[in-house]
Design a binder for these strands. Structure first.
Ligand SMILES: [Mn+2]
Ligand SMILES: [Mn+2]
Ligand SMILES: [Zn+2]
Ligand SMILES: [Zn+2]
Lengths: 145, 145
DNA sequence: ATATAGATTATAAACATTATCAAATAATAA
DNA sequence: TTATTATTTGATAATGTTTATAATCTATAT
């Protein structure tokens, strides 16, 4: 399952003329297998066992490459550091305000908002972003003590 | 009009037990009169004529105070620095991807998304954020050269 | 196997924001 | 008013994330 996605991602790299280095392979593999929304530093720390000499700049560089060819999406929240999502299907996120957990959820695209915004403001709309915030189940349970 | 809003804001400060210093007054006045979404540094630069000795930390401190008592909203985008909005009415933003212009627009709250997300994920939803991105009229005209 | 464009590493730099703390100021009590 | 206390300011240092630089290394094509 995630093996298949990794193969597809490597194929996309080749098609884009991006070299497949061991570091790139590892970052990509981590992104796909972790199924989460890690920060650059989380990826860096997760891989320092396998790659003790890898530079943090390499992680940043490769994440930028992946983003630019559409393999990952960069998520920027209020907190300090970006998060990276290799789920390229259209989806939204709900974020726990206590523990920071990010969960995917699906909802039809908000086309109506886009077209109204276009009419009212005269912009040419390209896209939108939307997130829902709240308290996750785990954190609710912890509060009950 | 903005005079009235400034008076109300000062009233809110008093009620919250926050001292009204000349610097606070100036930051608040700038936020309300500018009718825009400035960064901390823009506010700092705009006021350095009147307050040549004001520290940039004072701007940050006061913006945090204002935010914590609900007088302004902090907007965090992918780019480096936060922007501050003293329009406390419910509204959304549309942002130009070329020049960074931020324009308010109104739309009914996306309650349906919130309740679906609640059902699907088990979160207790508190709020959501949504922005539309595109190219503004001015930038469209400039492109036609 | 060799050449070379591109990638990696270590390091420094950039940048926004926060922390620190002495000095200044404002609120409050006497 | 004056003394006391709490808050705020301003200068500066520190923090944390991300990017730039430059020397070295390597994946890939020929
Ligand atoms: Mn996701
Ligand atoms: Mn606004
Ligand atoms: Zn949680
Ligand atoms: Zn524009």
């Amino acid at each position: 399952m995630s093996e298949r996605r990794l193969q597809e991602a490597l194929e996309t790299l080749k098609e884009s003329g991006v070299r497949i280095t061991p570091q790139r392979h590892a970052v990509l593999e981590y992104l796909i297998k972790s199924m989460s929304h890690p920060t650059a530093d989380e990826i860096y720390k997760a891989l320092e066992g396998k790659f003790p000499n890898m530079s943090v700049a390499t992680v940043y560089n490769n994440l930028r490459v992946f983003r630019d060819i559409g393999l990952v999406r960069e998520l920027t929240y209020g907190d300090s550091s970006s998060r990276f999502d290799c789920n390229t299907e259209k989806h939204y996120h709900i974020i726990c305000e206590k523990c920071g957990k990010i969960v995917d959820f699906h909802y039809p695209s908000l086309d109506e908002v886009e077209s109204l915004a276009e009419q009212v403001t005269g912009f040419d709309v390209t896209h939108h972003r939307m997130e829902v915030y709240g308290i996750c189940n785990d954190c609710k349970k912890k509060e009950q003590h």
